[in-house]
Design a protein around this nucleic acid. Structure first.
Lengths: 269, 269
DNA sequence: GCTTCCAACTGGCTTGAGCCACTTACTGGC
DNA sequence: GCCAGTAAGTGGCTCAAGCCAGTTGGAAGC
């Protein structure tokens, strides 16, 4: 039983909304529509492609989901500007940076000519989330940690949400419970408690934001977040502090520079 | 002129589709709908909330965009399973791993009980993209590099797209132009050329996939990608190889473990 | 028992209509 | 000159209806 194919339609039959989205994507990639340019209105697109407005609208939604364009209510749809990434380097943990008296965030902001702002949202004793408890080696059933939540801004735009967890037993009654944690910040206090930051472990993942995070970070549709689960290890290899960073991925990136372990001579340590 | 507010509606007036999406999200977070469970059908949701099917459908779309649920044509909409992350550790560059004879990817796959497959897609001389040329310190106007494109699979599921760039001048006529690049892979050959990998620099960002990447990686809506731009530096601090990794973020993560630079004693080296 | 077919379910996508909210520029009054 | 008002344009969102395409399970035929 043979079916004769219609001689037309050599393409794999895409639905109209996707076809329109792809056409627009090509126009953007070819530079016919540059960053910042306004796309034709939904009604204009509909007419141009002989489709309903909803179909044109769906095409725009697809592009927005890909992070290519941004709609502004009452104004139009615009090609998104590729943002200069705010890089968080692995030297942000470097102790020598403390000598400047600036936190790594303020340092990086200054380097990029932006003003930094850090809001201390809360400092509370809490029951830790499971992943935190596991890494900090504390109980996930008791209020075994202190949680410091900070929000970071560059030029008054929210950039990252930072949640730091420290053992309650160590923080209790110290400056670690205060917004102003003293010289060299919390790492200064933790060092006084006998924890010298010797190694760090950063676990990195990416995902779409929760609605709560999207609101806090002022995120547009189609922008994921970078999540870094950071563990500080002291001179004995013991974890003494765990921090969860949630970055907006359209404005921030990470940079790790590290030495490569060379092969050990046979039989030697 | 005073307006008397209707005594109801204390909430900030969310549109129905978002309200439905939020209700469903709460049901999932409360565990009433567990991972793998099937949501009510679009038609059922519409009736339940007294809305049109399109509105219920929009609610489901919002959840899919957040990566919470996945629609399967003809079957239904299901709560997404949190996947065990395939972790790429910073020791993947460690030379001591070469002793096993396994590439880091095969090693990690074995550790997780999965079968690894690596497809060599192409090995071609090319004009490098601007970001690559800058990092490899070659011309972005000539065909100055060799581009090796590989696709990595775990249990036959695509996991990452890897594009490695090497200087054409060094690769020309060597095993670096061959799919089987000999003992210890390309790093073995590059070492013979006098480049001992001494430091690495990884630049990490997250974004939504292009349609092309989404197809290659078999990505569902609402799943971002992790992009790692990796530069290998030799004993002289010179870059000799740059690789772009594109990971699917729902199944992979990165792990960096590194020593913290201690403060240098004043005036000493 | 086996297979084939079909009905009823699922999501995928489009249509065309309508109302709302935000933005902009122009117009008219003062 | 200034300001208020308005009209026209934009996206945001919903509706009701319809057809298509996978999926599933049971009924009918062999």
């Amino acid at each position: 039983m043979l079916l004769v194919m219609s001689p037309s339609a050599p393409s794999p039959q895409q639905p109209p909304s996707r076809r329109i989205a792809e056409e627009l994507r090509k126009r953007i990639e070819r530079g016919e529509l540059a960053a910042g340019d306004k796309l034709p209105s939904e009604r204009a697109l509909a007419e141009e492609y002989g489709a309903a407005r909803n179909t044109a609208r769906e095409a725009v939604r697809i592009l927005a989901e890909q992070g290519l364009v941004t709609a502004k209510h009452g104004k139009g749809v615009f090609v998104r500007q590729p943002q200069r990434l705010f890089r968080f380097g692995s030297d942000r943990y470097s102790i020598k940076n403390r000598e400047t008296g600036l936190t790594p965030f303020r340092l990086e902001a200054k380097r990029q000519g932006k003003t930094a702002r850090i809001d201390v949202l809360s400092i509370t004793r809490e029951v830790p989330p499971a992943d935190i408890a596991e890494r900090l080696q504390v109980s996930a059933d008791d209020a075994s940690v202190v949680h410091r939540e900070n929000h970071y801004f560059a030029d008054d735009e929210p950039v990252q949400i930072v949640s730091t967890y420290i053992r309650w037993g160590e923080a209790q009654g110290t400056l670690l419970m205060q917004p102003k944690s003293g010289p060299n910040g919390i790492y200064g206090r933790l060092e006084e408690l006998g924890h010298v930051m010797t190694r760090v472990r950063d676990e990195i993942s990416a995902r779409m934001p929760t609605p709560h995070e999207a609101a806090l970070l002022d995120l547009l549709p189609g922008v994921p977040v970078l999540e870094v689960l950071h563990t500080s290890l002291d001179q004995n290899g013991e974890p003494f502090e765990v921090t969860r960073y949630v970055h907006r991925a359209d404005q921030t990136g990470l940079l790790y520079e590290l030495p490569v372990e060379q092969p050990t001579p046979p039989e030697a340590q």
